[in-house]
Design a protein around this nucleic acid. Structure first.
Lengths: 214, 214
DNA sequence: TAGATTGTTAATCGATTAACAATC
DNA sequence: TAGATTGTTAATCGATTAACAATC
């Protein structure tokens, strides 16, 4: 169903549609028009209809969209019920926050193993998963289906580890480090989360804004 | 120096330039051309020159850019030495990760206070800061300069708290929740970080990719 | 039927890329 | 001077917005 070549801008809006539709659904709203959804989301009706029609005609003329129906369709497009297995590498502050904070099961994933370098953390439990030693990654990946690795460690550590992960066949990464994985391997899927970049852009905008100091 | 109306796309690329230039600098590289930087960053020379010339002419014809000089200029543009004071609200897993993981001082900010609802966490120390009771926010903000609030708590909690924060005069937010602050107040600066949205787009791309399963 | 709202085509707008004169 | 590379203008490309016929 999802067509090829949908732009990344459209794809990045899909989770947001999904969230707003989920909320409408939980409030018992049954149908919504692109115009009303646009007001709710500070978007435009045109954009919503264009975005959705990249994947199919989910509405009904003269009526609008079924809230539940559309939410489900977007869930299918995103593939949220696919259950890719993922491993977390790095059980420091950030890794622990990721592991405990997210509902992986609702996001198309299942966290199945956690690895860490620091001896002090090995053996501790996180989300019901025992933190394993760094060196066990290769064996684990050989014996288990692993789709994706979450990289919650510094750039330098990723630099050292990435060949091993790639060698094990892992081709998708949720990357919190500043190591540029896509540059090194062009056949991988990488979603980067650069928190410090995000904060820097906030800094820029505060400085640009008139009358906001401190 | 930074001109008005620079597009958000350009601004979001600035931290990345800053990072790559910092790395070149630490490797002792003194000059770089837009062409070489483009190769390094998987960008284009045109885009780099266009981006930089939104803010000024930092290069020298026939030579290129001074690595240190350009890094410093971009640092100035981003305002990384401005030291805005920020408070963190929410000392759960995510809040703790944010507090301990980032070098605020290098990013234009200083974390000065942490607030939390959960009694068990109040009084604990994070990054040398004692976690305070939720209700003390207003008094703290009245007595101290606070530019920005980091919101590391669920949507519902932000929904309840946002009027108080806005009422205290806080006009910029680093928002990890799904509450839509910009919708409610149109004179605020909001940088959203939606980790679950990010993971969903990864899910989509894995499902689209040929031959990647599990 | 009349009103509403979609799906889709066309128009506009803005961002990226290419080209090249200026100049170090 | 000749070569290199910028700053900047022009061309292209793609995304967003507007318009409207189709249709529920």
């Amino acid at each position: 169903m999802p067509k090829e070549g949908v732009s990344i801008q459209v794809i990045r809006r899909l989770p947001r549609y999904y969230r707003y539709l989920s909320e409408l659904e939980s409030k018992g709203v049954e149908k919504i028009s692109s115009t009303k959804l646009a007001v709710l989301m500070s978007s435009t009706a045109s954009q919503i209809r264009q975005d959705l029609n990249c994947f199919g005609g989910f509405g009904q003329q003269g009526y609008g969209y079924s809230v539940t129906g559309l939410r489900e369709e977007i869930g299918k497009i995103l593939g949220l019920s696919e259950t890719h297995h993922m491993i977390l590498i790095g059980a420091g502050n950030l890794g622990r926050a990721i592991a405990t904070h997210l509902n992986f099961e609702q996001l198309g994933f299942k966290l199945t193993a956690i690895f860490e370098k620091d001896e002090k953390l090995i053996g501790t439990m996180l989300r019901g998963i025992k933190v394993m030693r760094d060196e066990e990654i290769e064996n684990y990946v050989k014996d288990n289906d692993v789709s994706t690795a979450i990289l919650a460690m510094p750039k330098e550590a990723v630099e050292k580890l990435i060949d091993k992960l790639y060698g094990c066949g892992i081709r998708s990464y949720w990357n919190f480090s500043h190591f540029d994985i896509a540059k090194k391997y062009d056949d991988v899927i990488v979603e980067n989360v650069h928190l410090s970049d995000s904060l820097m852009t906030l800094c820029y905008r505060i400085n640009q804004a008139p009358g906001i100091d401190t």
